[in-house]
Write a protein that binds this DNA or RNA. Structure first.
Lengths: 224, 224
DNA sequence: TAACTATTCAATAATTCTATTGAATAGTTA
DNA sequence: TAACTATTCAATAGAATTATTGAATAGTTA
């Protein structure tokens, strides 16, 4: 094997990994699987795809070793192959944020539409607020995602049942809602609704996996 | 804009960035540009592409905002758009290393062919060796890359002129060669040649940009 | 074993990507 | 201004990718 053949092989192999990430549906799947394992049907549902199409994309991700498979009864569950997959996804996401004005613009426009653009708090600030007991932290993801792991001291208030929790929340305390990540809109919806009802609410600008894996802040988890 | 439209737009924009990286030639270009700016002709030469083809790939990278352009006389120089591009590339590379056995195998096989598989040292170890003055550090990249920036205390011994430097090197000291990165083979060639002539030589398992940007170890640079 | 269920496969047409070739362009030097 | 040079553009054919549809499969439950 000469120099050129060697380089061709190495970069071709790495390009295969990049190709597996080079599709919007698959990126959304990766972002979703950062929460934990999901069945094909769940993945199809959350990403708005047909089951066959979701399955096809999952095969692509599996072949590139980005996801792994476990069986649970009738269901096949997919999850990220490891922390490096999340890291690569974050690297890509940060790159998109930094140099592609289009990405920021879309987010900005969307949040403006929800009157929540200025209502985001970063992880560091939130950590301080928790420390000082200044905040009630709301995990607005579906309950089973909360059960797998959540930010320490957060309470589960899934977005579609949030209204039933309202009476337990104080209008004097600051409420911080978080969900799956910066592109997850449950938190935006929660903030919009809470403010509408007269509560003090902001969202965390990222989500659970960033809190846990990037920042290493405390979590409550089944596994710890 | 509803939820689904918002997500589609965000993930589609990020997929564009991933698509720009999803090609072996473009990954090799990114890896090369991590050394600093190069002209189209140089890029074509180092990657073994036609000028027209290299230019086309550079347009793709430019449209995705991964590279930027400066003009210098008759030449147009391309360089990475920023540190986030390097970070994303490293994220991808580490992912390939970790889960894609094929990548490791190719590297292993190639280095075995050069009898140098076991002759690599990592950055931390090298930093200690430098500290203790146990080592002579050889930058075997082309001289102009050395001039742009190199590891502190390294001397320039470009691979194609390495033989002329031999008489100045001691057989009693350990020699460590480095080049552009883990896939750069100049360092392997240097180690093979040096050992053949009876010197003690190993390569650094990564290259200059990793040393400088990832590990933050000391460098000598035009700009610092 | 039979029925059932979640998932995968296969075929297809539309779209996108890629390397090659040779011509066109923009900027520099004389 | 004219000649020159580095780079880009345009056209093309072959290859790869994608969503859709409906059928096939493997594993589970009764």
């Amino acid at each position: 094997m000469n120099k050129r053949e060697f380089k061709d092989k190495v970069y071709t192999e790495l390009a295969k990994v990049a190709k597996a990430m080079a599709n919007p549906v698959r990126l959304e799947i990766i972002d979703l699987l950062a929460q934990g394992p999901f069945s094909v049907e769940q993945i199809a549902h959350y990403t708005g795809q047909s089951v066959a199409n979701a399955s096809q994309h999952l095969q692509t991700l599996k072949n590139a070793k980005l996801v792994q498979v476990t069986r649970n009864g009738n269901f096949i569950n997919y999850s990220l192959a490891g922390e490096n997959v999340f890291n690569a996804w974050i690297g890509l996401r940060e790159l998109g944020f930094a140099y592609n004005a289009e990405v920021e613009k879309v987010i900005h426009d969307f949040r403006n539409g929800h009157n929540s653009d200025m209502n985001a708090v970063d992880a560091e600030t939130l950590a301080e607020m928790i420390e000082n007991d200044e905040v009630v932290l709301l995990d607005v993801r579906p309950e089973d995602e909360y059960n797998r792991g959540h930010i320490h001291k957060a309470i589960s208030t899934p977005i579609d049942k949030l209204e039933t929790y309202l009476k337990k929340l104080s209008k004097r305390k600051m409420l911080v809602a978080y969900c799956r990540g910066p592109f997850c809109v449950y938190a935006d919806e929660a903030v919009a609704m809470l403010k509408d009802k007269g509560y003090n609410a902001v969202r965390l600008n990222e989500g659970f996996p960033e809190w846990a894996l990037l920042n290493g802040y405390p979590v409550d988890s089944k596994f710890s």
